[in-house]
Design a protein around this nucleic acid. Structure first.
Length: 477
RNA sequence: GGGGUAGUAGGGUAGCCUGGUCCAUCCUAGAGCGUUUGGGACGCUUUGACGGCGGUUCGAAUCCGCCCUACCCCA
C-alpha cells in the first residue's frame, strides 16, 4: 500500500505510465492552463538540452545554425497551394496589433518554409552560392484538434529542429535526403532508440514535397510514433518563391530543395522506449546527472566518508562527466529511488565498508552491480557507462524486432497489430491501402527502406494479389 | 470529428441524487524539532482541497451553463 502511493503505474498501462512519469521524473508539467501547451521542468529541460546538443553537433558538421522570425505574413504563407492545403486548418493567426486590425494577418509558423524561402530567393544568385544547408531549433504552432499529449501532440512544438537545404540538381538534393536519413539514424543510435525508415505513401507526404521519408519507432503499446521526416521538395517551392541561380553556362535555373525535421517527440520516444516501472532510464550522454554519488553515513564517520566521496567526485568530474553528490539528510534508499526515477545511469555508493577497503560500489540504472577499486574509478566509470548504453540499446532493439511481424494472410493482421507493426505485401495503390486501413483501423506507413525488413525479392499485395513490394502497416500516434 | 466516464490537499477516496453544521478521511508531501542513515526511517507540532470561469441562492464540493484536463470507445 505504501509503495503504491509513491511508485508509477506499471508500464503495461502505458498511457497512464507515460502521463505519470512526466511529472514524477520532473520532465514536463502539464498543468499550464492552455490546451496543448506544457512546461518544461528544469530536469526535463536539461535532458532536452543534452539531446539537442547531440543533434546540433551532428548537424554542425556541414550545416549552419540560423534563426528566422516566428511570424509569417499571410501573403507569403499563401503562395504555395499544396502547402496551404496541408496546413491551413491548423494555423494560429495574429490578426490584431493592439486594438487595430492588421492589414496583413501574420501566421504563427507551423513550419518555416514560407518564412525562409523568400529570403533564400534574395540570398541565392549563383551556382557558387550552393549548396546551402541551414537549420534552426524553434517553437512552432499548430492548432491541433485531436487529443493533445505532452511531447507528442502539441499546439506549441517547443523544440522543432528544421533543416532547409538548397541544391543545384534534383540528384544532388536526393543525396542530401540520404545524408539526412543517415544523420537521423546516427542521432537515434546515440539515443539508443531503434527506428524504422520508410517512404511515406503519395497521399501522406509533406504538402509540397516530391516525396517524404519518415523515421518511426514503436512505442510500448505497439503504436508507432513518427520521430523524424525528410522531404525532397524538388523545385515546387523554388518556383513559387523564385529561388533561382545562374549555372556555369550562364543560364537561370530553379534550385532543388530539401527539408527535414525532428521535434521533441524524440524525447517522448527516449522516455517511452527505455523507461521502466521505476522511472526514467536514460543513455548516459543525455542524462542530466550521469554519475550520482551516495555517501552512506553511519555514526561518527561522517567527515571521513564525505572527504572520500568528494575525492571521488573530483575524479569523475575531471573526466568531464556530470556528477552529483546527494548529501541530503535522508536514508540512502530514499535517494536511490529518487534518482532512479530521474534516470541517473550510474550510482556510486560510498560507505564505511568501501572506505576501509578503498572500494566503491557502482550500480547501473538497470541493476548491474560492480565493486570497484578506488584507484580504477576513472577507467571503470567510463567503461560502465558505455556498457550500460550497449545493454539498453540492445534490449530496445530486441523489443522493436519482437513487435514487427511479417503477415501474408489478411485474417492474421488484426491480432498482430495489437502488439506492434506488420509488414505486408502491397501493390502501391491507394484503393488497396484504403481497404486495408478500413479493415484494420491501422495506417499504411509506407514502403520499407531497410533491406532486412523488406526482405528479398518481390511479393504480392495482401489485398488484391497483384505484384507488389513490402509495406509497413501500423497504428500511428 | 462523434460518444462515454471522470476531475475533491502532492497522491487515493467519502460526501453530490435530497444545497447549510462543529473536526471529512487514509497515504504522503511541505515547514519545524528530536532520534536516525548499506534499498522508500520514526515520534511530536503544523500547513494544505473541492479542475476553471460565470449563474441561481441568504448560503454551492453539491443545482444550472460554458470551458479546461484525463482515460476509454467509435470514425
Amino acid at each position: 500500500m505504501q509503495e503504491e502511493s509513491v511508485s508509477l503505474p506499471p508500464k503495461e498501462e502505458f498511457s497512464e505510465w507515460y502521463n505519470d512519469i512526466l511529472w514524477r521524473a520532473e520532465v514536463m508539467d502539464v498543468r499550464y492552463p492552455v490546451k496543448g501547451l506544457y512546461v518544461w521542468y528544469p530536469h526535463g529541460f536539461a535532458i532536452r538540452r543534452a539531446v539537442y546538443q547531440i543533434l546540433r553537433s551532428l548537424l554542425d558538421r556541414d550545416h549552419q545554425e540560423t534563426l528566422f522570425p516566428l511570424l509569417i505574413p499571410a501573403t507569403e504563407f499563401m503562395k504555395e497551394a499544396e502547402h496551404i492545403k496541408g496546413f491551413e486548418n491548423e494555423v494560429f493567426w495574429v490578426t490584431k496589433g493592439g486594438q487595430n486590425e492588421l492589414e496583413v494577418p501574420l501566421a504563427l509558423r507551423p513550419t518555416s518554409e514560407t518564412a525562409i524561402y523568400p529570403m533564400y530567393a534574395l540570398w541565392i544568385r549563383s551556382h557558387a552560392d550552393l549548396p546551402i544547408r541551414l537549420y534552426q531549433v524553434v517553437n512552432t504552432f499548430r492548432y491541433e484538434t485531436k487529443h493533445t499529449r505532452p511531447l507528442i501532440r502539441l499546439r506549441e512544438i517547443t523544440s522543432f529542429k528544421e533543416a532547409h537545404t538548397v541544391h543545384r540538381t534534383w540528384e544532388e538534393a536526393e543525396k542530401q535526403v540520404n545524408a539526412a536519413i543517415d544523420l537521423y539514424r546516427e542521432f537515434y543510435r546515440k539515443l539508443c532508440v531503434p527506428v524504422i525508415v520508410s517512404k511515406r505513401p503519395e497521399w501522406d507526404k509533406f504538402p509540397g514535397a516530391d516525396y517524404t521519408i519518415a523515421i518511426d519507432t514503436v512505442m510500448p503499446d505497439g503504436k508507432t510514433l513518427q520521430i523524424g521526416t525528410v522531404h525532397h521538395l524538388g523545385d515546387h517551392f523554388s518556383m513559387t518563391f523564385g529561388i533561382m541561380f545562374e549555372d556555369e553556362k550562364g543560364e537561370q535555373k530553379y534550385a532543388q530543395q530539401t527539408c527535414y525535421g525532428i521535434s521533441e517527440r524524440c524525447i517522448a520516444a527516449l522516455i517511452a522506449i527505455h523507461g521502466d516501472d521505476r522511472g526514467l532510464v536514460l543513455p548516459h550522454e543525455v542524462a542530466p546527472v550521469q554519475v550520482l554519488i551516495v555517501p552512506v553515513i553511519i555514526g561518527k564517520r561522517r567527515e571521513e566518508i564525505m572527504t572520500y566521496a568528494n575525492g571521488i567526485r573530483a575524479d569523475v568530474e575531471a573526466m568531464g562527466l556530470r556528477v552529483r553528490i546527494d548529501d541530503r539528510e535522508i536514508r540512502p534508499g530514499a535517494k536511490y529511488y529518487h534518482w532512479e526515477m530521474r534516470g541517473v545511469p550510474l550510482r556510486l555508493e560510498v560507505g564505511p565498508r568501501d572506505l576501509d577497503g578503498r572500494k566503491v560500489m557502482a550500480v547501473a540504472r538497470d541493476g548491474k552491480r560492480s565493486l570497484l577499486n578506488r584507484e580504477e574509478i576513472r577507467e571503470r566509470v567510463v567503461e560502465l557507462l558505455r556498457e550500460f548504453n550497449e545493454r539498453i540499446s540492445e534490449s530496445a532493439e530486441g523489443r522493436l524486432r519482437s513487435c514487427i511481424k511479417r503477415i501474408s494472410d489478411l485474417g492474421e493482421i488484426g491480432s498482430a497489430l495489437e502488439k506492434g507493426v506488420v509488414i505486408v505485401g502491397w501493390c502501391g495503390n491507394y484503393s488497396c491501402a484504403q481497404e486495408l486501413e478500413k479493415k484494420t483501423g491501422a495506417s499504411v506507413l509506407g514502403s520499407c527502406l531497410d533491406a532486412e525488413m523488406s526482405g528479398e525479392g518481390n511479393c504480392t499485395c495482401i489485398v488484391c494479389g497483384t505484384a507488389g513490394a513490402h509495406a509497413l502497416v501500423g497504428r500511428a500516434y
